[in-house]
């Protein structure tokens, strides 16, 4: 499809020299033309389909009329035979033969219209698909333009200042720093946890009288009593 190569030229070719706005509008002009032409294709396919559908319906109803009249004349012929009107029956038989030939021709016409109708339905479907894809492409180009404009606005905020442009690398650095901090915090927390576990163990040992109590009313009193006695 020639449109993609035209689009690529528009997106890439003049980008450096002319800046985004002109490139964008070129891409949009190309897509706009393609969408219009796809829309015209779709309309003409739809009109042709409507036309063929009408002809198909007409031919089909003529066929059923012929079939009805065949049944009718077959009835007349039987009636004529019953009444012994051999000559009349002969005439009706000729009429029936003519109707049968007409039915055959009409059936061919109906089949032909049915096939054309099917072909045109495919054509309409494919034109619709084409139009939908082009619209999506235009939406993507427009969305890309919007995002690029917003990014350019963010970039230009950094351009005038000393602040550094935010790139994915900065985010990665931040994540790594945070991960390192978290790891350090985790290690510190583990140490603290270990220490407090140690405290709990000492407490148990003291409670069991295995290690001496640090300071309690009981051992202060004991110490005072010992002092009194030595005096």
């Amino acid at each position: 499809m020639a449109v993609w190569s035209k689009l690529m030229t528009a997106l890439r070719g003049n980008a450096n020299m002319l800046g985004e706005a002109i490139v964008d509008s070129q891409a949009m002009v190309i897509l706009d033309q393609e969408i219009r032409s796809a829309g015209a294709d779709l309309n003409s396919a739809k009109h042709a389909l409507a036309d063929i559908m009408a002809k198909h319906r007409l031919a089909a109803s003529k066929l059923s009329e012929l079939n009805a009249s065949l049944t009718q004349y077959e009835g007349y012929a039987l009636e004529a035979l019953e009444k012994g009107e051999e000559g009349l029956a002969q005439e009706v038989a000729l009429k029936i033969a003519n109707i049968e030939i007409e039915i055959q021709q009409q059936q061919e016409t109906v089949n032909h219209y049915a096939k054309s109708e099917q072909d045109l339905r495919y054509a309409v479907q494919s034109a619709e698909g084409n139009l939908k894809r082009l619209r999506q492409q235009a939406d993507t180009v427009k969305a890309t333009e919007s995002v690029q404009r917003a990014q350019a606005a963010v970039v230009s905020r950094y351009a005038g200042s000393n602040a550094k442009l935010q790139t994915a690398m900065d985010s990665l650095e931040r994540i790594k720093t945070k991960q390192a901090e978290n790891a350090a915090k985790m290690a510190a927390a583990q140490e603290l946890a270990a220490e407090s576990q140690g405290d709990a163990l000492d407490e148990k040992l003291r409670a069991a009288g295995i290690t001496p109590e640090k300071t309690s009313a009981a051992n202060v009193l004991a110490r005072l009593k010992a002092k009194q006695q030595s005096n």
């Binding site: 427009k142 969305a143 919007s146 917003a150 985010s171 650095e173």
Partner: peptide, 17 residues
């Protein structure tokens, strides 16, 4: 890490960039 992400909806498309 304060990654900036731009999002826009246009017609039948949403673009995340």
């Amino acid at each position: 890490g304060d990654l900036p992400v731009f999002i826009t909806a246009e017609g039948e498309q949403v673009l995340v960039e």
